[in-house]
Amino acid sequence: MQVTLLGTGDTTGTPTVGCDCDTCERSRDPGDALRRRLRERGVDSPRERDVERTRFSVHVHNERTGESLLIDASPDFRYQFLREGVDLPDAVVVSHVHFDHLDGLGNAYRLLEDVPVYAADETDPNTGESVAETIEDKFDYLDAIEVRPRSPFETIRTCGLDVTLVPVDHPPLVCYGLVIEDPETGAKLSLSGDTSYGIPERSREMLADPDLFLADAIVPADLCEYHPAGGAHHDDAGVPRTFGTKHMTREGALDLADDLDATETRLVHLAHFYPADEAFEEPLAIDGERYEL
């Protein structure tokens, strides 16, 4: 399967609208050295546009069947698909109901036909409905999509791939990571979803041993001092693996990758709060990276 990172940013993306911080400015004017590094990451050409992190989304293409799966529907859907030139999806999986992962689904209007949208069926006590029910309510005007509720840990066969939603920890809302496996080749992609380091053990077991792991790593750990809730899930040296309560730090994401024995790890859902001299260094991802699994 071919994995394309359509969007690797957090809810505001990088560069952030109206921001002139050093990281956003470097994103707008990356320089030749960064462009060379992008080529090494598999990004098509040393593009003269911004080095971007649009809102989160991942495209998975199954070369055997010619079908494509979209993981989360970014508000930047239209731009991402035009920019990367990938096929429109034959199916969609939605991890949770925050707008930066869901609202791009409205792009199905006049673009898609009869596309299944898979989402969890368990009721969120904070909303009184499941992710699937929220999508049905929000997009009831879209005849192009068919919401298909699925239980966590229930494997779905779609686009010739086996897809499993696994619960993670993103309070106050329910949220899910994903495991995507090719039943023919054994290739495995795992996504942490938006989560703290406190992922349940059964979910960790499902996520383990991926060829590629995409891990939420919103900021470096030293920025926890600026969060009202501080940090959590500290390691033996006292470094917080969770920023506040909802997202992993860079250090926490890398520790989780080690826990899961990931072959390759890319950090995603990244904020522009990373210092400019760290923001585009390995293993932090940027939009447009492609991987063959």
Score class of each variant (00 low, 15 high):
Ser203Pro: 02
Phe99Arg: 01
Asp50Phe: 15
Thr54Leu: 14
Thr4Arg: 07
Pro149Ile: 03
Phe153Lys: 07
Gly13Thr: 06
Gly106Phe: 05
Glu52Leu: 00
Val179Asp: 12
Leu270His: 01
Asn126Val: 03
Pro30Lys: 06
Arg202Glu: 12
Gly231Lys: 07
Thr11Pro: 06
Leu267Val: 04
Leu178Phe: 13
Ala91Pro: 11
Asp76Glu: 06
Glu129Ser: 03
Asp137Trp: 02
Gly198Asn: 12
Ala271Cys: 12
Asp76Phe: 10
Glu40Lys: 06
Glu278Arg: 12
Leu260Ala: 14
Glu136Phe: 00
Gly13Trp: 05
Thr127Lys: 12
Asp216His: 13
Glu25Ile: 15
Gly104His: 05
Tyr109Gly: 06
Leu260Cys: 12
Leu161Glu: 05
Arg53Val: 02
Phe81Ala: 10
Gly18Tyr: 08
Glu67Asp: 10
Gly230Val: 07
Val131Asn: 11
Arg266Asn: 00
Leu173Asp: 04
Val17Thr: 11
Ile156Gly: 01
Arg148Thr: 15
Thr245Leu: 00
Gly85Val: 08
Phe99Ile: 05
Pro171Ala: 12
Thr65Pro: 06
Asp287Ser: 08
Arg26Tyr: 03
Thr23Ile: 03
Phe81Ile: 08
Leu293Val: 12
Thr263Glu: 13
Asp121Val: 02
Glu278Leu: 01
Asp259Pro: 00
Leu111Gly: 04
Glu184Lys: 03
Thr155Gly: 08
Arg39Phe: 06
His61Arg: 04
Ala215Val: 08
Cys24Ala: 14
Leu212Ile: 14
Leu214Glu: 01
Ser45Val: 14
Val268Glu: 06
Ala229Glu: 00
Arg35Thr: 01
Gly128Ser: 04
Thr65Lys: 03
His98Ile: 15
Asp103Leu: 15
Glu146Thr: 11
Glu133Ser: 04
